[in-house]
Design a protein around this nucleic acid. Sequence first.
DNA 1: TCGCGACTGACACTGAGTATCAGGTTAGGA
DNA 2: TCCTAACCTGATACTCAGTGTCAGTCGCGA
Lengths: 206, 206
Amino acid sequence: MSAAPVGTREIGRHAVRAELARVAFNRFCLTGFDQVTFADLAEAAGVSRSTFLRYFGTKEDVVLFVFDPVGDVIADALEADRANEDDWGRLRDALESAVTFLVRDVQELVTILGLIDQTPALCARLREKQTEWRPEIVARLRETASSADGSPVIADVRVAAALECLWIVLGQWSASGGQEDLGELLDAAFAAFSTPARGQTDAVSS
Amino acid sequence: MSAAPVGTREIGRHAVRAELARVAFNRFCLTGFDQVTFADLAEAAGVSRSTFLRYFGTKEDVVLFVFDPVGDVIADALEADRANEDDWGRLRDALESAVTFLVRDVQELVTILGLIDQTPALCARLREKQTEWRPEIVARLRETASSADGSPVIADVRVAAALECLWIVLGQWSASGGQEDLGELLDAAFAAFSTPARGQTDAVSS
DNA sequence: TCGCGACTGACACTGAGTATCAGGTTAGGA
DNA sequence: TCCTAACCTGATACTCAGTGTCAGTCGCGA
């Protein structure tokens, strides 16, 4: 999914990138994202500033490149779940795939999310990525036969809402230090769409 | 709401700011946001670069400062609509207040939204503002007595989802050149939350 | 008329991000 | 084994956003 490296050159590049990110990440956590410059990072990693810049287009990418595959993960999970006919159910399961992909090392992810949370520039860039994923995901959600249940925006809205759930849930989870169960948190969040909205009993208002 | 200017000094400052933004906006539309530098803007407006920078902290703010009051507009509308007990209904109406506030000059708003849409930096910054609004709005939504319908995240999720609707709807509206009716577009978007999600008949899946 | 506070332009500075270039290294075919 | 083309690196120079400082100016009330 993340363009599996093929060829020795690509493998090397991939490894260097990971190492640079590792070193940089420690610096960020130690000093704060904004206080660290590319010059610092390059020195800490033992390469020139030019080289560092060649591996990561922006400082944000040094932290956020791990999220790059998430869009495809969600889209693929949606693809593999055509059977399910309930939009919310499919989206919830796709998000579960996404968090499963992200949670390799609990402690590391918690730290990353913490860093992102307290760095506006990182939040912004991450949301930007999220927006880039949306069209692809919407297309997959629509692929199932019957999208005749109203206006075409509905898929857009549902995907956007689901992606918001992803960050809300990850925020909660990271605030708990990675203790809480992500599946349950997803269920709790998605309840916002299935629980009647107070006072709404049978007929839906609109 | 937008800190109504009081005192001659404040009035003057406000007026200058508006004028600078007007001049800059023309430049942006003409040449593209990224191609225009602060030096260009300052020259076009007949002030020094320093002065221009003093009125707008960042280039993004030159375009986006008009959206600053939206968060409060939504929060206030929610406040004034305590009677309604349906979360989605309240949010929909609050969003209607927001678009009403934004749509003073149709042509101008369409142009701004177009500029934002094709400038990643502007999208990112706008989403950042949106995130800043959320806590306040969530607090207002929760204020009504019975928030006992499940986990506390539900309000978060609903507000986030509603705000996504806002941009989706504005995007649609601006793509139609401001022709379509914003109220109807909002209804269509919110249908994503009330229409059964395909195959979901009576019992809600979770 | 004086003085205070705010506004302005000029200047210097840091740091992100882009572009170019020369020299070294490596992969992969002959 | 050798050769070449592609690639990687570090150095350097550049543009521009954004911050900070400073001295001169202007409006306004005392």
